[in-house]
Design a protein around this nucleic acid. Structure first.
Lengths: 233, 233
DNA sequence: TCTTAATTCAGTCAAGCGCCTTAATCCAGG
DNA sequence: CCTGGATTAAGGCGCTTGACTGAATTAAGA
């Protein structure tokens, strides 16, 4: 395997081309539907084993793409967290969850593939775990989670975890959906990434702040908040 | 191709076995990662072309699985809508969005594969469109959307559409996540499908009811609701 | 200038794939 | 009981894939 030629060595450039090609192809067709050969060829390599040589396996290729972008997002998130530290507003911390990703997407020059790529990669059963692990390692994300825990002290842990997962799903899949619409030239619900981010912050803030219907530990509870209804027919 | 042997003919039974095997394998490994041969073999067929014979293509196989379940969910949703008709509470209509799916999942005998299967199928680029089309055709879903539009008249259409998409993503992926955790024997944020449904209704209701930050038609607006911040470093 | 290690090229190979064919097998209606 | 259409078994064909290899090509340093 090639050493991680970080800079503009010969191999480093090839690596970049492979990463770019992989990101695009995986975003368009799904990770499993694209062979390493196709990635190698799309990257302009005559050697059909180029991916194997530079990355070892498809899993490591995908992780390399993820890491490449994660780095930049993590930086932006660190900035956002620094500016938010001390705030008592849930919305401010949700902002830290959403804006870094959105701003990074907006900063990439179109056409972008990242959002769709991430949605694909996160859904692939064999890739889900390692990618989420990388997420768990982010210190900034950890700080945001801690802040939300502090601001929502009455909320059962299970509810907060559940809602964190919801926030993640919304961010990933709504961005992917917008990116897809953008690419296909169709209509996008929002005119800009900026506006999409605002919509996501509105929604995710509402999710975290929503009153949680208490669920009885076991057995039927007094009510689950559903309307009057019992046998309609 | 086989006629749609609906009942318990010889071919009908094989069809069922193929559908069950496909649902399981696709849920576990992803649609693209499973070959038609593997599905045929898992269904106990010696003929590696069994899928082709009975369904024509992988796409039609997937759609057949979707339709099989959709039918039952649609029935439950019709009941729920009938019981909710006339209600002015957003939550009641969100209930109609969530409960039918959740209750159907809860009614299936474990282990279930449907939720993960749907998440996989919806993410597959080539399958997304036809599946969403089937969704659009549902008259009950149409009625729910109409009701929500009626109850949220001030909300820009783009915001409502966006939030409908959010609701769909949350329902699909949160169920898939719980089902996965259930299958792997890990911890589930909620003890029961019932409680998961309640959590989803809480969250999705909040999303629909959330105040939408107005986005200026063009150019920088007065505020996007973000905290005081301008150059943290 | 000359090494030399890293990288790319240009293939090979077995395994698995989609698609197709032919021959058995099944079973409902005559 | 027989027959014909539907279904399943068994396997072939051409192609792509992942994994691998040895020779050519760079390019950076001695």
């Amino acid at each position: 395997m090639a050493g991680s030629a970080s800079a503009s060595t010969r191999g480093g450039e090839t690596r970049e081309q492979i990463l770019a090609a992989a990101e695009r192809l995986f975003a368009e067709r799904g990770v499993a539907a694209v062979s390493n050969r196709q990635v190698s060829e799309a990257a302009g390599q005559a050697n059909n084993y180029a991916v194997g040589y530079h990355f070892g396996s498809k899993t490591e290729l995908v992780l390399a793409v993820v890491r490449k972008h994660d780095q930049s997002v993590e930086l932006r998130r660190a900035e956002a967290v620094a500016a938010t530290r001390g705030s008592e507003r849930v919305r401010d911390w949700v902002h830290c969850l959403v804006r870094p990703t959105i701003d990074y997407l907006a900063a990439l020059e179109p056409p972008t593939w990242l959002a769709r790529f991430l949605a694909q990669a996160m859904t692939e059963p064999s890739l889900r775990a390692p990618i989420l692990a990388a997420n768990d390692g982010s210190p900034t994300l950890r700080e945001v989670r801690a802040a939300l825990t502090r601001l929502l002290p009455m909320q059962p842990e299970e509810v907060r975890d559940e809602r964190s997962a919801m926030a993640r799903h919304l961010l990933v899949h709504m961005c992917a959906e917008r990116e897809r619409a953008l690419h296909e030239g169709g209509e996008t619900p929002r005119a800009t990434w900026e506006a999409t981010g605002t919509g996501l912050i509105d929604a995710i803030t509402a999710v975290f702040l929503a009153p949680a219907t208490p669920v009885p530990p076991r057995g039927r509870g007094p009510s689950d908040g559903s309307p009057r209804r019992r046998r309609a027919r």
